[in-house]
Each structure stands twice: as structure tokens, then as C-alpha cells.
Design a protein around this nucleic acid. Sequence first.
DNA 1: ATTGAAATATGTTCGTA
DNA 2: TACGAACATATTTCAAT
Lengths: 156, 156
Amino acid sequence: MKVVNENVVIDGIDKTILNFLMEDAKKPILEIARIIGITGAAVHQRLRKLEKAGLIEGSKLMINPRLLGYKTLAFVGVYLDKAVSNPQAVKQLSEIPEVIECHYTTGNWSIFIKILCKDNEHLMQVLNKNIQAIEGISRTETFISLNQQIKRQIKI
Amino acid sequence: MKVVNENVVIDGIDKTILNFLMEDAKKPILEIARIIGITGAAVHQRLRKLEKAGLIEGSKLMINPRLLGYKTLAFVGVYLDKAVSNPQAVKQLSEIPEVIECHYTTGNWSIFIKILCKDNEHLMQVLNKNIQAIEGISRTETFISLNQQIKRQIKI
DNA sequence: ATTGAAATATGTTCGTA
DNA sequence: TACGAACATATTTCAAT
């Protein structure tokens, strides 16, 4: 069965390969090949095709930042002045290493960001010294993640 | 220079290794070793230490879900009835594949989730059929990510 | 698209310092 | 911790189907 859409066409075998690797990027392709019942060369060729199609963006080692002292995860809704250049504000946000996500959003906020800090004090400093200092950011609304219960990629 | 905290102690070499692999989990350790100026065996040994310490959670292949038709990313603030068992609600949320993050949060919402859907119609169905159906979820507030500008892990 | 086999590259172990 | 050499696995290429 094939899944068709605007950009990339993948079949069930591609899906299986991707789902395995999205779970563990280091899973040997020979192992995946054995499970599927094709050769490693075939899996390899499919991966090249998917990479060429732009579907694969790379692989990341995932660490537990908590063990390095990053214990406060927070979300911040940002109000931008009408006059301000949004890309300029985003550019300045991107220079704050604690900012790990930034979205333009619908709703009351112009921008919505995710911040990872060592503790609440560190969060407060980032908010007051780094974020509030950005031209055009008038007001922010912050809420803290007390506990992340789900963290995963979409199952394709 | 060593970075010390409650749980794990890493030095600058560990940091360099991790930062490389957080960017690209498949970067050969021999290449990293050459850059740092130690042998591959030493890098390997450090990685084993970091893994044993629980700092390394694994590696993930990153894909671009947009190319598979997942084009609507949304955030949903969830109000839970006081009486409801929060873990039970989270459990039911975890059974919705479109829910890719779920946090207990401070502020007005009890739970805050991130959802990835194919389009706005799909989002509406997930909200109305799957999420609103969960016992104890009285009300939700949704906002859509029009454009994600920053997406990264913390630089350690 | 897939195969099998060869060639190359990478990861892993271990005795030693 | 780190090294270097030996060893084990994995990836990549390729001619053939």
C-alpha cells in the first residue's frame, strides 16, 4: 500500500525503516533488513532515496539535559509591538541559547517560544535580561512545564 | 575546566563530543577524535561512561513530517476538571498518536500539549473526536504554529 | 527495486602505560 | 584516562537481474 501526497511517496517498507530509525538512529540497517526480509543493500538504497527526497533531516543524539542541571522548561507567549520587524525579533531570540523553539502563532501572542533553563532563577534572568531586552517585545506570559509526560516524534 | 552538578560530571572534551553528536548522531567518532586530538578508543570510552551515567538517552533519525503531509502543528492548553485523575487523562492522551508532547504546567491550564496533524481539518477532528472525548477534559484552547523558526537542542 | 559479494569505513575490545 | 593494534560490525558500492 502506498501513501501519496504532495511531495514524497513512500511505501510500507520505507515506513518500517523510518520508524525503526526514528526510534534509534543507530539501529543497524542489516538488522532492519533482516526483520523486513530484504537485503541491507536494498534498505540502504531506500534510505538514500528518502534522503535525496529531503525527508530525512539528519540524526540527533538525545541527551537528558536535566542531568546537566537544566531543570526548568518553560513556555513563553510573546506580544510583539505592531511596528516591530518580526524576523528581527526572531533573529535576536535565536541568539539566546536557552531558546530551543520559536513559532509564529495564531491567537493573542505573536510568537511562542520554549525555553530550557537551569532553574527558575536562571529562567527569570533570561526573561528579564535577554528576552525583555529585545526591541519590540512589550510583554510576555510564561508558564512552566512541571513535568513532561509525552515526548515523541509522529509515528508514520 | 569541569562542570559539576547534582548528577553527572563532564569536562570540556565530553561536551565537545556530545555537541557534535547532538548535531549529527552518525558523525564518526574517529572524526571527532581527530578534531579533539585523542584516539577513537578514548572517545568511545567516554561515550560509554556518559551512557552509563544516563546522560545519553539514545539517538533519533529526524524527518520532515511536512513532506509526509503533516502540515499543521498546534499547541493546546487543556483545562481538567478538579475531580479527574490527571494521570488517567495523560494516559488517554498518549494513545492519540498526533499528540507528540504533553506537559503538566503552571498557570491556567492543567495540561499543555503539542499536536501534529495533516491539516486544519485533521486537527479539528483530533480536538473534537479524540481530545474532547477524554473524561475530565472540559475545555481546551488551541493555537496553531504558523511557522517554526527555531528548533534545536540546548547547546551544552 | 533487489540481490550477493566485495571493498571500505566504522565501532569495539583489550593489554599496556 | 588515554593509547595503539587487533578484531568485529556496519556501510557502501556495483554488476547483474
